[in-house]
Design a protein around this nucleic acid. Structure first.
Lengths: 345, 345
DNA sequence: CTTCATGGTGACAGCGCTGTCAATAACCGT
DNA sequence: ACGGTTATTGACAGCGCTGTCACCATGAAG
């Protein structure tokens, strides 16, 4: 039992026969190689559709000496973030007939680099998408480059020669802070993100810039260290609440910490938004599921994942599709999502 | 650029030469096939180690007509649930040198079955792990069986011949309801899950059984339909709150809906747990991030994923590794997580 | 001592696809 | 119309591995 699965599936030969061309021509169409007459291409594409043909990855990999798989490198910062990103990446892979191999690693693993390089070599991974916070490991990025492993990073850091998908985090944080100021707040606290994450600094920078522009003083006590997780958010919130001159608004570097602020506020009977406005960053589902709804910054995570994979795959095929030149990633737009946690008094 | 990675890797021929045997014998050793003399086996294993040989998956897949990959079929019920499950499955795959291919599909897709079968055929997926709610599509399961595609389902339904990973949902709901009763509640409402999900019925059944055992009448108005999503939870909560004889406790069939109940309660100034106790099911991170913390039922999702994949892979290798017999899945334990949302008055 | 079974091994033919290269068709300018 | 290009296509040889089958030892059985 189990061996099963007899039923010869559609091969390139079937398509070739049906379209009345050689298998090589079919191969050309499938791989978007140049120099195929439009009419021929159409015939082949029709046959492909009718037979519902999909190339056999193993055969492809064997012949082309690559796996037609890209890897996703991550260190699960937040399941929501990752799930979104993954689905975007997966979508792109699907469109281009690439496979996706997942590799959860640990940022703090001392032989992170060996692990990754070995993995790529063993699995014949053609290229990798690197996600935060791994994008902030300069050694890792260097190693990938040195090993000649194509990579795209999803990061706000302009990372050397690896194409990057990003939003303007500084501007987003700036806008959010300005929004808070616009709502009449002047005692605005900030909870920083994990110091290892490059994005943390950018968000912080945006916060400062907005204060400066509005001539609001930066109160050192109002800037607390957090680490992007719920618990650190609680701790930071506690400290802020214990201040003699309690802030009227708290801007946390991500939604988890912002939720923690609201959690703490509840337990101290501080009413949000009446006594305290709270804003987050990321627009995770969580921001809609807590009460009151959390004002936050939305980034098109899914699209970013999609495009990152897209660019990576294009780069990989660049050899064949001679026309294509290396496409760098454009910057994505963010959006302020205003919800109950910052509603005007 | 990009093409990179030139470095002829070690092939089976190299190993064969070094060990002084034929490639077929190396293949036998690698695949743990019987009938290789111990001495020969050792020689080969030594050569493998010295050359650091790893079989090329593409070649293997092509020749053996299987991919050494298993598929994960899902219809993203909740990112948290999925992320957990996935990481368990991934772990098992890693241990057994299998790849994981993801396939997000839609439960309501009319040609779900075609899509899936085709995918399996074309990608040469060796077997699939089916997750809820797809596990409730009897046609799908039948099709997998008919098509002779090895599958394990993670479901509470004792699904015919496909091994299943499960917890006793009925008992879990029963325990939770009893807990509520034990806390002094007698007006306990229930929000049902999606009617297409088999688990929904089981949870409901557990609720009824507890009431019956305690001689509490079932109030029809107290049982509302939900669909496992936040919005449906809000709707159901609204209806319950509008009742003249409002329940003092609400048991929702999953955490998302329970969070929605709390959300609605907040917006109506109903205080949890003072005026209302709320319980959920699943122990998603959300249950710890809302205020008050949500009492819920924890299931070892990650372990379930791990074991499901484990069993599947074992089944797949059963053909070669002759000794092994098909191992069925054991039932997993659940656990009541008591938090603030049901704290005693 | 022959006759089988059976353990142990290797030769060989693909698996379905892509790279190479040669063949042919279409097009260019004069 | 002719030589020279360039665009388009196909024949064919593997890629590295496993399945099949044939082969040679052994040892048990007769």
């Amino acid at each position: 039992m189990g061996k099963g699965n007899h039923m010869r599936s559609v091969t390139i030969d079937d398509v070739a026969k049906k379209a009345g061309v050689s298998i090589k021509t079919v191969s050309r169409v499938v791989n978007r190689e140049p120099n195929v007459r439009a009419a021929t291409k159409e015939k082949v594409e029709l046959a492909i559709k009718e037979l519902n043909y999909r190339p056999n990855q193993s055969a492809r990999g064997l012949a082309a000496r690559r796996s037609y798989m890209i890897g996703l490198l991550y260190d699960n910062p937040s399941p929501n973030y990752l799930a979104n990103l993954q689905s975007g990446v997966l979508e792109a892979c699907h469109e281009k007939d690439y496979g996706l191999a997942l590799n959860p690693v640990s940022f703090h693993d001392p032989d992170l680099i060996d692990t990754v390089v070995h993995w790529v070599r063993q699995s014949f991974i053609d290229g990798v998408v690197v996600t935060p916070p791994l994008t902030d490991s300069v050694p890792l990025l260097n190693a990938l480059h040195a090993e000649n492993i194509p990579a795209v990073v999803i990061s706000s850091r302009g990372t050397g020669d690896a194409p990057a998908a990003l939003i303007d985090e500084e501007a987003a944080a700036y806008e959010m802070t300005r929004h808070l100021i616009g709502e009449g707040h002047s005692r605005i606290a900030f909870i920083k993100g994990h110091p290892d994450h490059y994005a943390s600094g950018l968000r912080e920078k945006g916060y400062y810039r907005a204060l400066r522009e509005e001539n609001l003083a930066v109160v050192p006590d109002y800037v607390q260290q957090g680490f992007f997780d719920f618990a650190s958010g609680q701790k930071a919130a506690s400290k802020l609440f214990d201040l003699r001159d309690r802030p009227t608004a708290i801007f946390a570097s991500n939604d988890d910490m912002a939720a923690a602020v609201i959690f703490e506020a509840h337990s101290r009977k501080i009413e949000v938004p009446r006594d305290l406005a709270v804003a987050g960053f990321d627009d995770t589902p969580l921001s809609r599921q807590i009460w009151p709804g959390l004002t936050t910054v939305r980034q098109p995570i899914r699209s970013m994942g999609h495009q990152a994979a897209d660019v990576l795959i294009d780069t990989l095929s660049a050899g064949k599709d001679a026309g294509k030149e290396r496409r760098d990633l454009t910057q994505f737009d963010f959006e302020l999502k205003l919800r109950g946690s910052t509603a005007r008094a």
